[in-house]
Design a protein around this nucleic acid. Structure first.
Lengths: 234, 234
DNA sequence: TTTGCAAAAATTGTCGACAAAATAACATCG
DNA sequence: CGATGTTATTTTGTCGACAATTTTTGCAAA
């Protein structure tokens, strides 16, 4: 079902998605149609279709006669996303404990072994852990065998997270500790202990969220006054 | 977000979304561009943009040189969605317990009172409970004050559910019981008991999911998926 | 210098036309 | 009669051009 003859709009959409996630198209950047069209060597028609698709995906925002811009992700929004991830990936871990195959568990162990080697090799930077972390979470999500869940998590929710990681050049929070937590989760999966797997996954993501929230300045745990001013005034 | 001058593509996108959810555009129906363009009285350009946006929203599926079709939702997928709803709305209930205002709790009570009157009045059919149920869940989600959560739940996830409800003409499962469960949830919110609110909400949705899954086992007379008649009004 | 308004430029929205591909129809052959 | 290759039609993909709107620019006045 791969694109046998990928259309121009599809190709451009994919390229732009990559450009946005990688930061080559900065957050809030205006998408100038004639310019981009010339740059990609295509007409404005397919480009507009690609932009509309990205709009549906939530990666760009479009106002009627003012053009489209790359969405901006505030740290607050990142924290919100981590809340959602906590709920969703916790569920994924629980489902995975029931659905995962023994072979997949073995593969997960091998993956974590590889991560351990990578961390030991590139001590300090641990950039590989970035993609490796994604890889781990990807596999858990896939193992849950819930198509809609996969679609939401991998299709929509992860883009902002990847954008943030790449663009902020944020190093992994204590990759050694993350690795240990990953191992515990896999152990729970191997034991078919869905409850424990969910708990550990939630704690794992909640830890990352709190680390993120710490950058916000204040603790965000109990929001006493929600401050309804979203300040998205236009 | 005041649509100062809604563009054609936006308007058509909205109309098509409505048509898909309401079932006027059946599941699996082919989106014939010249036909639809004539029907809407516009050119193919904006129509294609609208379709691309719907594609990003996950309401239509597009294959390179074969055209776009309305997505088909199997009962299995519905069950998957209810799993996701359970996790997400459970979280929403927990967050809402912390974030909701006293005034909002009062409004919720009033809403449920109205539902009770409606059920008593239109005993049996209880069609109002359909939208009312959505209304209740809407408010809980909003009360969680998590923008991303709202976006995912109300933006993407609910469309298939509404499609299913509308098209299958499914009556609410025991509206009286649903109402009671709703009341208990609001009570938990009023007590600021997030844990209990989450538990009750999860149980509430899990019940609906099980009722849904029961249909999966036993094939009943009403065929849930209508025959894909390619003919649309011209 | 700053403010306000008007013209100009650029950009977005929309359309019709042409090229490429897929589907349908049809005639031919086994 | 059915299968198959070819043609014809429909449908999708792409492009350039024109209209509508917004933003910028320029200029004059307070």
């Amino acid at each position: 079902m791969a694109a046998s003859q990928p259309t121009l709009a599809d190709r451009i959409c994919e390229e732009m998605k990559q450009a946005i996630v990688s930061g080559r198209l900065a957050q809030g950047a205006k998408l100038n149609e004639p310019l981009l069209a010339r740059e990609f060597g295509i007409s404005r028609g397919p480009l507009r279709e690609a932009i509309r698709r990205l709009e549906g995906l939530g990666l760009v925002r479009h106002v009627p006669h003012a053009g489209a811009r790359v969405v901006r992700h505030s740290l607050e929004e990142l924290v919100e996303i981590y809340h959602v991830r906590e709920a969703l990936e916790g569920m994924a871990a629980r489902l995975a404990a029931s659905a995962i195959s023994a072979a997949a568990v073995t593969e997960l162990h091998a993956l974590l072994d590889a991560h351990e080697r990578d961390i030991a090799a590139s001590d300090g930077q641990a950039y590989v852990q970035q993609e490796g972390d994604f890889d781990f979470h990807y596999r858990i999500i896939q193992a849950a065998r819930n198509h809609k869940l996969t679609q939401m998590l991998l299709g929509d929710l992860y883009h902002p997270v990847r954008m943030y990681r790449v663009q902020a050049s944020q190093r992994a929070h204590r990759p050694q500790r993350a690795l240990t937590e990953h191992r515990r989760i896999v152990d729970a999966l191997a034991d078919r202990d869905g409850e424990l797997a969910e708990l550990l996954m939630r704690r794992h993501i909640a830890g990352a969220r709190k680390s993120l929230a710490a950058q916000l300045g204040g603790d965000e745990a109990p929001s006493p006054i929600p401050a309804p001013s979203t300040s998205t005034r236009s």
